[in-house]
Design a protein around this nucleic acid. Structure first.
Lengths: 145, 145
DNA sequence: ATCTTTGCTTGCATTTAGCAAGTAATGTTT
DNA sequence: AAACATTACTTGCTAAATGCAAGCAAAGAT
């Protein structure tokens, strides 16, 4: 996988991995919208195409950002969960949200408002931990096993 | 510009603006490598193509993330500087750097090491301010005017 | 007056993303 | 058990973004 990196700068390398149009959107959906199956992602506001979704999930699995598993009672549905590497992307996602709220409103008036973003801004560190704890709680089955 | 946004989610919208392969790399170069002219960006480790660089600089200017100006004594060289919107991207860049250092090393063994990343990790908030103050100091001419 | 530097643009090739349709395996309903 | 529906894909084609090489005009240096 080494040949995929443009250079040895950590910032550029992070962008090489999760800097495409969809990776961080998928991770956001897992982290804050409780999405975990192929169908869940398909039905998102963002309307990702199925071939792109499929290739992105494979790539994220290769970089150990997500796990692919199944529940014992269902042999059809794949359950995708964030690994620790994936959960560690939370601060990036939170900072993107804060930046948009502060700087993009003049170009995009319909941006979500309100409590959640206010909460993120006021108590960033606490909110990051809240999102992570919430994610872990709702995915205890996968994380426990 | 409204039609460029996939939906009303702030995270997705931030990715719509700076989530391409080059925007955050250019901003990183300005913020941490002191680059400010077309030539500076051209000569980077990452080796951006000139047509892409040109279109990215225009786009970043449209979103008021950078300013394009000239020094009084030189009519040829364009000087690009970060606006406050651009400087506000610093926390995102810092978090990308931390994530890489903690999570990408197994896939990219040649990642830069050492002091700087250690410093970022240990004292994140202080380091963000240090980067910003340093940038502002070196660009006082543009910021002052 | 000529040469070099800077900041581009243009044309073409390649890669990545998007859309619509198809499909195989599983699960559900009658 | 047969038919239908759901899930998680793949395939083929189109469109958009990126990459490469060359060219070029304006400004500055020699």
């Amino acid at each position: 996988m080494e040949q995929n990196f443009r250079c040895n700068c950590p910032i550029t390398s992070a962008i090489d991995v999760v800097g495409d149009k969809w990776s961080l959107v998928i991770i956001k959906q897992m982290l804050t919208e409780g999405k975990k199956t192929f169908k869940d992602f398909m039905e998102s506001d963002e309307a990702i195409a199925t071939n792109i979704l499929s290739s992105r999930l494979k790539m994220l699995e290769q970089f150990k950002i997500i796990n692919k598993g199944k529940l014992p009672e269902n042999k059809k549905t794949n359950i995708y969960t964030l690994t620790d590497k994936g959960i560690a992307l939370t601060p990036i996602i939170v900072e993107l949200s804060i930046w948009s709220d502060n700087n993009l409103r003049e170009f995009h008036s319909a941006l979500y408002e309100g409590e959640q973003i206010e909460m993120i801004r006021n108590k960033k560190e606490k909110f990051i931990n809240h999102i992570i704890e919430n994610y872990k709680k709702n995915n205890w089955l996968q994380h426990g096993v």
